[in-house]
Amino acid sequence: MPLSEHEQRMLEQMERALYAEDPKFATALEGSGLRTYTRRRVYQAIAGFLVGVALLMVGVIIPQQIWISVVGFLVMLGCAGLAVTGWRKAPKPGERPQAGGGGPAARRQSRQRRSMMSRIEERWQRRRDEQGH
Rank of each mutant, 00 (worst) to 15 (best):
M116N: 10
M76Q: 10
R114N: 11
G94K: 02
A90L: 07
V42H: 01
T38W: 08
R127A: 12
Y19W: 15
G132V: 05
E95W: 00
C79N: 10
P97W: 08
T38V: 04
R123T: 11
A83W: 00
M10A: 15
Q65R: 07
I66V: 12
V53I: 15
G132L: 12
V58W: 11
S32P: 01
G94Q: 05
Q112G: 05
T38S: 04
P93E: 08
L55E: 08
G102N: 11
I61L: 11
A28T: 07
P93W: 00
M10T: 13
G48C: 10
A26W: 11
R41Y: 03
L11F: 12
R128L: 13
G94M: 02
T85G: 01
Y37A: 12
F49S: 10
A54E: 02
A99C: 10
R41M: 09
V84F: 14
G94N: 05
P63K: 13
M57Q: 07
Y43G: 01
G94L: 05
Q112N: 11
A80H: 00
G78M: 08
G101C: 09
R119I: 05
P91V: 11
R126F: 08
E130Y: 04
G72W: 05
G132W: 07
E15M: 09
P93Q: 06
F49E: 09
V58P: 06
L77G: 07
Y43D: 04
S118T: 14
M14V: 03
E7Y: 01
A105P: 01
G72D: 03
G31N: 14
W87C: 00
F25Y: 11
R40D: 11
Q44S: 14
L82S: 06
V70G: 11
V42T: 07
M117N: 03
M57K: 06
S115R: 15
A45N: 10
L18D: 06
H133L: 06
V42P: 02
V53K: 03
I66T: 12
R119V: 02
V53G: 02
F73A: 14
L29F: 08
L3G: 02
G59T: 04
L56Q: 12
G52W: 04
L50M: 10
L74K: 02
W67M: 14
G81W: 01
L18I: 04
M10P: 09
R126K: 14
Q125I: 14
R88H: 05
A83G: 10
A105M: 12
R9H: 08
P104R: 13
R128G: 00
V84W: 07
V51C: 13
V75A: 13
Q125N: 03
T38I: 04
R35P: 06
R113H: 10
G81N: 04
R111H: 13
W67A: 15
G52N: 03
A54W: 07
R123Q: 15
Q65C: 08
S110T: 12
D22F: 06
Q13P: 01
G100M: 01
F73N: 04
D129F: 08
V71N: 09
R9T: 09
R96W: 03
P23A: 13
L3S: 09
G86N: 11
T85K: 02
